[in-house]
Amino acid sequence: MEVVEEMDIQEQTIGIAPVGCSVFAYDYMDIDMQEAAHGRACAVATGIKRLMPDKYVFTYQGDGDLAAIGIAETLHAINRGENILIVFMNNAVYGMTSGQMAPTTLAGMHTTTSPDGRDVGYYGAPIKVSELMAQLPGAFYVTRQAVNNANAVRRTKKALQNAFKYQQLHKGTCLVEIIGNCPSNWKMTPIEASKFIDEEMVKTFPLGDIKVPKTEELKTI
């Protein structure tokens, strides 16, 4: 929201919050928004953006939403190169429904539906959404950031600023994955949760840019 305000694009921005903790996103943002069904944010965003190509359209999705029930909509939107920003909150669990296993749950991680730890032999390994999606030609900018310390927040903000700016170019989808925490469902204190990100989450989900636009592609900004 800060990014939208700083760029002074409130009047041109429409957000989509699907089901998950992100339904509460609208409480924090004074912009036009649509709530979407669980997993369908990218289809809703497509419907908006195709009709209003000059507006800024972003989705704010959890990992269950984006990587499980909505992976088809997400993958196809990116493959079409929809000029939208996908903000992907990866907290490795289903938050809203109180801590079940997500496609991004780490190997061995305990959740309410993997009480003995995620068995990758049974459920497969955590999906690395950003690496997967970056392979699609429609993906323009893909980055993974965190928000568990001041520097990380600064980098995340920069990534979001870039992603909003890139929408003006009409060159494809921007995907900003944010490693978030969910202390209540991880059954940790906030400090432990922050440490868990630095020590465990980043092993599976290394931070940094995964796909960046070429310099010549950015000339017109």
Partner: peptide, 26 residues
């Protein structure tokens, strides 16, 4: 006008949702 072959009927109805919510006849 916009015409799009979606990846599924689930996607098409949700595209309709987005476009209708933005005020368009869809």
């Amino acid at each position: 006008r916009i015409v799009m072959q979606a990846e599924s009927e689930v996607a098409s109805i949700n595209m309709v949702y987005g476009a209708a919510g933005a005020g368009f006849r869809t």
